[in-house]
Design a protein around this nucleic acid. Structure first.
Lengths: 204, 204
DNA sequence: ATTTTCTGCTTGACAGTGTCAAGACATGAC
DNA sequence: GTCATGTCTTGACACTGTCAAGCAGAAAAT
């Protein structure tokens, strides 16, 4: 019997279920997720989650929203004390990849459109906040370096590149290795990304 | 009884199962995939797939390899007749996204590391071929425009950006809309990507 | 203080799933 | 013909998500 912390029987079952979900996905991947196993780990019956989250989609959506909130925190912490726009965007990119790699349980469901309900209010608020940080960062670069920069296109490419890198992070080494290529570390790669996004492929 | 086309009882059950898998994933997404439903659609018993592919992972791996082979074909068709390196890479990028969007059944499993067996020989061969095309394309740009270009870093960023864009394609509009942003079409976006990858965010 | 209502959770059932073992059965070799 | 081989079926197992019903304890009403 855990000491009931605040609310009711269990204390805070929704949070416990989210935590168990994250733990489970971290261990076994999004595929290995099972509502009943989550209930088991939280010490409740197999139908308890349904009472709080409806279907399993509801639980995963809640986890995804939590993930976006931690991402926003990581963004804010990363730019803390930095003033150069390029430096800030670089830090945000690293924060994104680090968050993705350090929170695979969250990240694995954050950007899927069939595991979660993208129209969920809490999810929309959290994900919108993250996107807004990115737009702000790129707008600052536009103002400082290039008034003609298409902020939306740049935001799409930046998010895509960083997200794609995080997604492919486990797949790329294998493929590169077969082509007898050695890939740089995440830090170095992200620095290269930043430089290329500023200067492009062409020699300046 | 279908007229046995070539080989044995069914004709070519492995191909039929791959086709049914692609159809099913296209309809219901990777999550909606079910080995038994695939068997049903192919008109065989629920355990028939296991005989050819072992577990469901084996079947999905085979589908992923098929996807990479069509991707390679799309790459080769896209650069056909083009000679400017930048133009060729741009065409490959569009081919990648088009292939991803037009073959969701394949794409949904191609870059996952838990649904498939990345060490499968046929899969390695197909995915390696695709990566080699990308490396060749970027090497050509290095030779033509910037001898100091880090080909590996550029390849990683390019693949990441294009892959991320394809993955996020269904999620981005929703997020952008909440931020009251209007996103461009795929063609326009890819052209912007190409230009930014060449010239960067800074004004030249 | 007793009753009622309601919320949080449990129990039991249902159809569906992947995988395994055993068997059927057409085909090819001999 | 007999035999073996590779292809597929049948049946079983433990497991899954979801639903309906019921239970128990907290809160509210009386």
């Amino acid at each position: 019997m855990p000491m009931a912390t605040s609310t009711y029987h269990h204390g805070d079952l929704p949070s416990a279920l989210r935590a168990a979900t994250v733990e489970l996905i971290t261990e076994r991947g999004p595929t290995g997720f099972s509502l009943r196993e989550v209930a088991r780990r939280a010490g409740v019956s197999h139908a308890a989650p349904a009472h709080h989250f409806g279907t399993s989609k509801g639980l995963l959506t809640s986890v995804a929203a939590e993930g976006f909130r931690t991402l926003v925190e990581a963004f804010d912490a990363a730019v803390e004390g930095r003033h150069d726009p390029i430096d800030r965007l670089n830090a945000m990119g690293k924060a994104y990849v680090n968050t993705a790699l350090n929170h695979p349980g969250h990240f694995g469901v954050m950007c899927t459109d069939e595991l979660i309900d993208q129209s969920d209010a809490a999810f929309v608020e959290a994900s919108t906040g993250a996107y807004q940080r990115l737009l702000d960062g790129i707008t600052a670069i536009r103002d400082a370096h290039n008034p003609n920069l298409d902020v939306d296109a740049a935001a799409t490419m930046t998010w895509s590149a960083v997200h794609g890198y995080a997604v492919l992070h486990s797949a790329l080494p294998g493929v590169a290795e077969k082509n007898e290529r050695v890939l740089a570390t995440m830090e170095e790669t992200m620095n290269s990304f930043t430089q290329m996004m500023m200067d492009g492929y062409r020699a300046r």
